[in-house]
Design a binder for these strands. Structure first.
Length: 813
DNA sequence: CGCACCACAATTTTT
DNA sequence: TTGTGGTGCG
């Protein structure tokens, strides 16, 4: 009976039905995607269509049922009893529904951000428990690091290679330009770096690049080729890799070594890649290599959300996935679970103006919802004030701060908004300005730690050799560098035996003292945990002393930042079984500010539209909807650029769940110049039915001007501490721990400490606000441990303020 | 050698 | 307007 074809079909169908029941909470398309386990699969997932849910359930399906949902194969021992059990959905039918359940470590799930990876891991753990820990859910870059740490030696790197972040690369490049005596106006570091990055993406080596450039006789390209070559040489000498190198070297490693390739190919039976529209060519190569044995590669993406073309992402990867994988199945997820109809209609209408796309229409069962509001304001101050009052109004009707996001095109637009919110006491979090790990003092200390791990890291050694000052001057350093160049050894080697070089006789002693200190620290690091190394470093180098003995008040916050770094080291130690200093440093390099996004703290979120990708908020405020800003000047007249801007607009719109507001100003001051801009063309692309117009007019402009006088004073009225540290959020590592995060996650601009004295206000009492002047309290509405105040300021009008956070602007009179 | 002052330029940036 | 990098002086 058991080989009977009918039975086989029946059994497979019953098995599939059984599995389908497990995923009955998904919609049909989602379920299809979850159950299609074998072979290449392209999931075109519109914004808010539940793609993470699909990813997670797909993994769950693989772990639980293996390929059963997508296979005709039935076990030899399959019989009527088992079929019956499946049909009856009986509890012990599970084994009958399994075909080679997948071991967790055979799954590779690639995301683009650490945050997304953490989120994935967290949700997988929730669903699957402990075994989720063995799934490789990580970014391309961290996957590469993990693979390279095992075998980078075949490429000539040692396994404790360091990772250079963008600013490290920039300083390296600047050094090279200087040494080559090239003008950084003619060879701007950023664009040279991007040329190198593009070359690596193809990938083309420095030698090939040079050869090609020489063939065409292009002088500039030859120069860039030479820079590329030197850059590569120095990176290698420092045992360092930049972000592109991580990918490039992983690819090289797999291409060059059959054994390693086959190891990883066999290991990853299923590969999933999220945000596929943002992959570059190297990432495509890497994925292709890894998937070349099992061909079980599932990519999820949305061509309409590709907004990183400028960074080398190629939409081509997703557009041609079907051609490249002939037996590929494609599933479209178009039902949106996030937004209301008006918002989706706007999104669809805007993106329809793009030509290069697969074509997709989002729809929802959520209902029409509230129309979008398009505000016309007179200038950027009124814009900020309007946002602030809308936020306050919403908060006073019971909506938490965290439900709101303010999005803009450029980080430079955030400052006026910050002041407006600060003034009325709205807690907020700004993302994307100076990263914590980019701060000079943090980089300094990290450089010490890096050099201790790998002394051949010339770049970082240069950063600290005379910092704190130890009498090793520019001249001496140059001499030492020249010797290092000549002897083809590292700078460290030269200074540690400085007494051997007559030309270094004067700084010799100080150099050797410094080298000895590093050597001792290196020794210390091999026997002590990383936090102790940190302590030893700041003690022995006198770095913290330097900050603490300084008269500059900025150094107080610098010292705080340095100590914050220790928290992050401790955090790393706590979360890793085998914490090493080099592991910590690698982790840092791959860390971004967005990872610190803290949805637990009740704050309004401010970020660029780019950073907002992948997030959602009940209320979204998009400011600066003006020609020349969004779309930016550079995109106007450039078809491709414009389409990217439009995709960005699509991303911004689809962040909103319920409420969406646009703002455009009649005139705006940006970079010190006032310009009058037309409303953004994207606004015209939104159907009138979905959007109502509101003109704030110039009624309030007098008051905003009054306010603007103070808006320009950066640290106005702030007692002690650094302003910056309050308006930014940063933290150490976060594998998802929703609550109970260690203390180094700082709550930004959070309502003032409850210990701070609050002005004792009473209804009808008089106050003075540092911006608005004198006023009378006309209404007090207690909210949680705070209080919403309505204060009538003479000549300004009635303003709503939050007592706690606005108290530093307020005094009782 | 360190600090102060002035010119200059300034999308976006998952790693 | 803001931040940064280069130069010149004490």
């Amino acid at each position: 009976m058991k080989n009977d074809t009918d039975f086989q079909i029946e059994y497979a169908a019953a098995r599939r039905a059984y599995i389908e029941k497990e995923f009955r909470n998904l919609n049909e398309m989602q379920r299809k995607a979850v159950l299609a386990t074998e072979g290449p699969l392209l999931i075109l997932a519109g914004a808010g269509s539940g793609k993470t849910t699909v990813l997670i359930n797909r993994i769950a399906n693989l772990l639980r049922f293996g390929s059963a949902s997508d296979s005709d194969w039935i076990p030899d021992n399959a019989d009527e009893t088992m079929l019956q059990a499946l049909r009856e959905n009986s509890l012990d039918a599970l084994p009958f529904a399994q075909v080679q359940p997948v071991e967790p470590w055979r799954i590779l799930a690639i995301t683009f951000t650490n945050k997304a990876a953490d989120e994935l891991k967290f949700r997988l753990t929730q669903m699957l428990g402990e075994k989720a820990a063995d799934i490789w859910a990580c970014t391309f870059h961290s996957a590469c690091v993990r693979m390279l740490r095992r075998n980078a030696d075949i490429l000539g790197y040692s396994d404790d290679f360091t990772i250079y972040d963008t600013s490290d690369c920039q300083s390296l490049l600047k050094r090279i330009l200087k040494d080559f005596d090239l003008d950084d106006k003619i060879y701007p570091p950023r664009s040279v770096l991007s040329a190198i990055s593009k070359a690596k993406d193809i990938p083309v080596s420095a030698e090939e690049y040079l050869q090609e450039a020489r063939k065409f006789g292009d002088a500039r390209r030859i120069r860039i080729g030479e820079i590329y070559q030197e850059y590569t040489r120095r990176m290698f000498a420092a045992n360092a890799m930049d972000f592109d190198d991580l990918l490039l070297n992983a690819v090289r490693m797999l291409q060059q070594n059959e054994e390693i390739l086959s190891f990883w190919q066999r290991r990853f039976r299923y590969i999933m890649i999220d945000e596929y529209q943002d992959t570059n060519h190297l990432q495509f190569l890497l994925a292709s290599l890894l998937a070349d044995k099992h061909h079980n590669i599932c990519v999820v993406g949305d061509d309409d959300q590709s907004i990183y073309r400028f960074r080398g992402a190629t939409i081509e990867n997703i557009l041609s996935f079907e051609e490249r994988n002939r037996n590929c199945r494609t599933i479209r997820l178009e039902q949106n679970y996030r937004s209301t109809e008006h918002i989706l209609s706007a999104a669809n209408s805007v993106i329809r103006n793009n030509t290069e796309r697969k074509g997709k229409e989002l729809w929802t069962k959520a209902g029409a919802g509230d129309p979008i509001v398009n505000y016309t304001v007179s200038d950027e101050n009124e814009e900020a004030n309007t946002v602030a009052s809308l936020l306050l109004a919403d908060y006073s009707s019971g909506v938490p701060w965290r439900d709101h996001a303010v999005l803009y095109r450029m980080n430079a637009q955030s400052s006026q908004l910050e002041f407006a919110l600060k003034r009325v006491g709205i807690p907020y979090q700004v993302f994307g300005s100076t990263r914590f790990f980019d701060r000079a003092e943090v980089k300094d200390v990290l450089s010490y730690l890096s050099v201790i791990v790998s002394p051949s890291d010339d770049l970082r050694l240069l950063r600290i050799i005379n910092n704190p000052p130890r009498g090793i001057g520019e001249k001496s350093i140059e001499t030492a560098r020249a010797i290092a160049m000549e002897e083809n050894c590292s700078l460290y080697d030269v200074i540690s035996r400085a007494d051997r070089y007559p030309s270094l006789s004067r700084p010799s002693l100080r150099m050797r003292e410094f080298a000895n200190m590093l050597r001792d620290l290196h020794q210390f690091a091999s026997e002590n945990p990383s936090d102790a190394v940190f302590d030893e470093v700041i003690k022995k180098t006198g770095y913290l002393d330097m900050l603490q003995n300084s008269n500059d008040e900025k150094d107080v916050s610098r010292a705080e930042n340095v100590m914050e770094l220790k928290s992050s080291i401790l955090g790393y130690k706590k979360e890793n079984e085998d914490p090493s200093l080099s592991g910590y440093l690698a982790n840092i390099a791959l860390y971004t500010d967005l990872d610190a996004f803290d949805r637990d703290s009740d704050c309004v979120v401010m970020m660029t539209m780019h950073s907002a990708k992948g997030l959602e908020f009940p209320s979204v405020y998009v400011v600066g909807m003006e020609e020349g800003i969004f779309p930016g000047t550079r995109a106007i007249g450039e078809q491709e650029e414009m389409e990217e801007e439009r995709r960005l607009c699509y991303v911004a719109i689809t962040r909103a769940k319920k409420h969406l507001c646009f703002f455009h100003a009649r005139q705006r001051m940006l970079f010190g110049h006032t310009t009058a801009n037309m409303p953004s063309r994207f606004l015209d692309e939104i159907p009138a039915l979905d959007m109502i117009q509101k003109d704030i007019g110039s009624r309030n402009s007098r008051y905003s001007e009054y306010g603007s006088k103070y808006d320009q004073a950066p640290s106005y009225g702030y007692k002690g501490g650094s302003e910056k540290s309050f308006s930014h959020s940063y933290s150490g590592f976060r594998t998802d721990r929703p609550a109970g995060s260690p203390s180094f996650i700082r709550k930004p601009n959070s309502p003032v400490k409850s210990s701070d004295p609050l002005p004792e206000l009473s209804l009808g009492g008089s106050v003075r606000h540092k911006t608005f002047g004198e006023g009378v309290v006309v209404k007090m509405t207690p909210m949680g441990n705070d209080c919403l105040l309505d204060i009538h300021f003479s000549g300004v009008g009635t303003k709503k303020l939050m007592l706690r956070a606005a108290s530093r602007f307020l005094e009782k009179i």
